[in-house]
Every structure is written in C-alpha cells, then in structure tokens.
Design a protein around this nucleic acid. Structure first.
Lengths: 253, 253
DNA sequence: TATAGAGATTTACGCAGCGTAAAGGTCAAG
DNA sequence: CTTGACCTTTACGCTGCGTAAATCTCTATA
C-alpha cells in the first residue's frame, strides 16, 4: 500500500516537516517519488518509522538511531546498553546539580540570616547600607571570613534529608503563623511552637545559635521591609510582627 | 580597575566570544568602550559575571539569569526554588526514561529468547527467515500474540532491582564461561553453575521455563551465527558450544 | 620609524531537530 | 475551468555559543 506524506504524518503523529527532514538526513527515505516529485511511502517505511519513533522516545539522537537501524542484530543491544549508561551518567549529573541548587537555596536563605548575625558580631551600622546594595557577597568576604567559612562548612554538610526537613519545618512554621494571625494570642502553645520552629530552622544554618541573635534577627525582619515582604508574601498576610513578638517572648525562657 | 575582554576571559575561564554574546544580549554590558571601540570592564562587571556564572552552573537559562540579576531581592529565592522544581521534574522524567530503556533492553533480549521459544511452539521453519529479516516485530504480532502478551506482562512487571539482578547474573555467567573455556571440563561444579546461571537468567523473561526449551535455545545459539557472535564477542572467546554442552548435560538432571 | 605579534572589532556560518512561512506547483472534485 | 487541499523547495528562526575570516589597534623591539 502507498501513502502520501500527509497520510504518514497523520498516522504517526509527527509533522510533514519532520518527515522531510528525515528524508534529508537519510534516516527515512520514501519508497519512491511520484512523477511530480511527491514522496510516496510504503509498509516497509512505516515499519522503519515505527522503530525510529520508539528509539526517539527513549531519548536517542537521530544519528545514533540511524546507526542502529542500518546495522541490525546485536548492535541494537549494544546501542541500547550504551544509551542506558549515558542516561545513568546524566542522572548522576542531575542529582549533583539538584544538590547544588538546594545548597544554593539554603545558602541564599542563610545569607539573609547571616546578615543579621554579622550585624551582631560587630558590623558597623553604616555598612548595612552597602551590604544591602551589593546583596552581601563582597562584604562578607571582607568582614566575615571566619563566620562565613564556618557557616559554609555547616551549610555544605547539609544532606538532602536535612534540606527536606528544613522545607518541612518552614512549611509548618508558616502554617502556625497563619493560624496565630487569627487570634494574635501569644499566650498559647501555638505561639510557642512558632518560636520553636523558627529556632529549629535557624539551627540548620547558624554555626552557633543564641537567643540574643535570634531576637535581633526578628527585630531586623521588622525593620527591613525587604525581609518583611518575603515573609508576609509567603504567608499571604502580615505575620512578621507575630513572629517577632513570639520569639521575643519565648526566646529567654 | 579596568580590564580588557581578554583579561576578563582569562580570569573567568570563559571565551571572549561568550563575553561578546553576553554584551549582545544585554546580560553583561562592559563598563565603557574605548575610543577604538574596545570593551572595557570594571569591578562591578566582574562581580556581576561571577553571579552569572554561578547561576549558569546551576543550569539556569541566560534569559532567566538576566531576570534574576535585574530584579534582586527575594525574587532570587523564588527563581531558585522554581528552578529546583524544574530540575525535580526533569529528574522524574529521566527516571521514567531510564525505566523504559531498561525495559526495552530486556524486551530486546527477551525477544531473542522468545524467537527460540516461538520456534518450539509451532513456528514454521520457513518463517524463521522472514523473522530474521524483519527482526521479529510483525511476525510476533501475527503468530505469537498470546505468548507475546504473557511475556510482555511478565517483562513489564520487572522492577529496577530485577533488572540489576539480571545484569549481575549475566555478568557472572560470562565470568564462569570464560573460566570454563580454559578447562573445557563439563564435569565440574563450574560447568553446572553455567547451566544454573543461564537458567536463572531465562526465568526472568520466560513465562514458563522448561528444560526442553532451554536445550532447544542453546541449540539455536549454536546453529545461528548471529547469536553465537553476540555471546562470543561478549566473552571475548568461543563460549557458545560450552554453554550449549553444559545446558544439554545438566538440564535433565 | 617600521615591524611583528598579540589582541581588538564585526560579520558570517555552523551545530540538533525541527517550527513557521513564503512562493509556486499538483491533484481531485464540483 | 475553478477551488481547496496538498505537494514541493527555500529560507529564517530558536539557544548558546564555537570557529573563522577580514580588518583595525596596541605595544614592544630593533
């Protein structure tokens, strides 16, 4: 049976452009050309296309597919196994990339908290402005190398499980804050849990936790609208003052 | 301090071409142009480039990096977290792809054994030629639908752990065959292990194992040089007759 | 001052696997 | 004959550069 290029495209779900491209690169030649130059495909071409699409769906490059199809037999297995190894390597690379992204996320968040911490370790107030302008990188290198390295060390030791746990703590924290926003009652177990969750979260980033630093941090959250925006946007309502008040109340007990 | 494009390229490890491209797309503009049109970079540009390279190393697209850098603040976190989600989705897709490739590998190997099995379930000898020509797909659909479906079912139920186990069995089998090739003594525990390993391997693919079919399979290995080639190439020496003899000897005991 | 080598510029084409579209020819039904 | 669907080739675009040609600029040295 003979098929036009449109019929093949409709049957296979790929475009006529793709079929012309495959003809161009000799991956799938039509059975014949009509007198007017139209491409005519047969059953054998359909069968070959089926195999092409299978391997393509596995992520094989067209050039590789061509090699496989033009040298049938056990080379198919070899090619598939080689392809499998490539995918395993790609997976490993992706895992490493994911770990790096997670660490960068935490690093950035840790940077926010570290900015506050550095403030309490002697940064001059006038430096805060420059810190804000440059978003911290150059400043940290100049003024907080020891702290940065300690924090980096702890940060870099974070495992994937730690990361997930931090995410969960953060989710729980925002959930509690939302609930607390309804009563605004600090004399509840819930308010204390807000403090405890925030403390628990911080301890993943800070080399040394202290109640003093904790209170200073939430104070800074209040004073700097950039931080306030982040937390309030995340919660969908005003929660920073609640967080501040809960920490101030419970951090000394 | 002022730097030429070469100096920046040397310091950063990227090409001058890349720097010109970044200039072209407004990702990293030079601080100024000299009278002769040379690009001159400053410290601020170096700092920005550092950030670009960080995010690039995370796999972010340049357009996204530009958005992040041109809108600092908490959008950085949002972008990183969004990027993290993308990578997680990509990982999931890759895992599925890997599973599919593994299944295809096993399917192809199972096809080889199924060709032999189908022969024993009534295929006409003259059909073998056509099977070989088309590599089996159309033939199986016509003549072995029940068997195919049963085999497919069992095949598709293979887990990743099963796949790894099959790989290990196959490795062990070839290792034994290589040792056996030195003595060619079938009256050894090693020869029996060859039989047992091959049987164990087959049972992952065959819905119903039988000694009769096993013997027929290795007979076919001998008769068809395509199979012989696969096994002998894999082992790096002639092992098919050994495999055949070991199976024939032990499959009835 | 002239020369040579290093480095600068812009322009252009290529890569993988197509999508989109223009310009013009072909086929089949009404 | 007309019209609409389909065919062809040619061309440009996408992402992020690598490679290279043609030509200008800078600096050190003889």
């Amino acid at each position: 049976m003979k098929y036009s290029i449109k019929q093949v495209a409709d049957m296979s779900g790929i475009s006529t452009r793709t079929l012309r491209y495959y003809d161009q690169i000799d991956l799938l030649k039509p059975a014949e050309l009509s007198d007017s130059g139209y491409r005519i495909y047969g059953e054998e071409e359909l069968s070959r296309l089926q195999q092409i699409l299978l391997y393509r769906s596995l992520g094989m490059k067209l050039e590789q597919i061509q090699s496989v199809l033009d040298d049938p037999g056990f080379h198919t297995l070899t090619a598939l196994e080689e392809h499998h190894r490539k995918l395993e390597a790609e997976k490993e690379k992706l895992n490493q990339l994911l770990a790096t992204v997670r660490k960068t996320i935490q690093y950035t968040k840790g940077e926010i908290t570290m900015t506050a911490e550095e403030k309490f370790e002697g940064f001059k107030k006038e430096r805060l402005e420059e810190n804000e302008r440059l978003y911290g990188e150059e400043i940290r290198e100049k003024y907080g190398k020891d702290t940065v390295e300690k924090s980096n060390k702890k940060f870099m030791d974070l495992s994937e499980a730690d990361f997930q746990e931090m995410q969960r703590i953060e989710d729980a924290l925002f959930s509690k804050l939302e609930h607390l926003a309804k009563t605004k009652d600090l004399d509840t177990p819930e308010a204390k849990e807000v403090y405890e969750l925030h403390k628990k979260w911080l301890m993943y980033s800070w080399p040394n936790y202290s109640a003093e630093a904790h209170k200073g941090l939430v104070q800074m959250y209040l004073a700097d609208e950039r931080f306030a925006k982040y937390y309030n946007d995340r919660a969908g309502r005003e929660v920073v003052s609640l967080l501040h008040d809960a920490v101030v109340k419970y951090a000394e007990e």
